[in-house]
Amino acid sequence: MQLGIFNFNMKKLFLFLPLILLGFLTSCSKEVKIDIPGYVEQLVVDGSIQTDQPPIILLSNTQDIYAPTNFTAYLNSFVTGAIITISDGTNTVILDEICTDNLPPGTESFAAAVFGIPVDQLVNLHLCAYTTFNTAMWGQIGKTYTLTISNEGKTYTSTTTIPQPTALNSMVWHPAGGFLDYGYLTGQLSDPVNEVDSYKWEIKRISDPMYSKPFNPFFNDQFFNGLTFNFETQNPIEDMSTPPQYKGYFRLGDTLILKMSKLGRKEYSFFDKKFNQIYSAGSPFATPLNIPTNITGGAMGVWVGYSPWYDTIICE
């Protein structure tokens, strides 16, 4: 089995048939302008905390479906000036607002990855995230973190817990059939019994600044709870220098860092439904799906705690 498949989740295969049909059908589509009533602006929270890392929170507002979609509109959708606190039950910290036009040295590439904007453009923009340099509020396994956001007179709250990590039994490189220099990874996972386990999967070459992830990096143990099984995985790293025939394979001689994070069941539900929506959005064959949130107070989005487990693999 390939990891890409169980990311794909068997349920979504059920949606695949309609998508094939959709492919045939959308060939005869045209743009229309019809009335879509009911837009209300809502706050969107995109927050995470992981072991040994500071919390990072981005705030934005939802946009009307017919609102302008140019770059300025995107920049204007971010929310600044909110008051955000995080509590671990003992300590409470007010987060700092860090903006891209005033980034602490060494954080540029990280910020570029968070916003998806190249560094040279980013430093000329005013986009802000909320975080803290107080290491007392950096993520610790087993702790529960409460997020409180005050914005324009409204208060939003959420909690998340960093679960225990799970390690892979093994992860090794094999040459792919027909290639000498490129191959795939095979791994073995023993899923813990008697609990619902949710995972996030990322990988990078040791020299890469940031991790790469498959289109949907999330999966859970619905179909393999308590099982030990082998799987194959493809390379999600986008590299223009890789010849097209080797796309999806790992190069001989590379050193890879694998990051497999665990997350809570409720938080997983956000990502599961999010990718369900991405797979089926617009399809008439699926019910319209609003993504659930673990934020109270009328906001959208997620506040998630991750506990990563790392492995170094030398492709040899």
Partner: peptide, 25 residues
């Protein structure tokens, strides 16, 4: 149909309005 959109982790997501509130031509 979606009444609004938002971005999470660089993915475009939609927020759907009231059920069957849009009418086709």
């Amino acid at each position: 149909l979606p009444t609004s959109w938002y971005i999470q982790d660089q993915n475009l997501l939609y927020n759907y309005g009231a059920r069957n509130s849009t009418r086709m031509a």
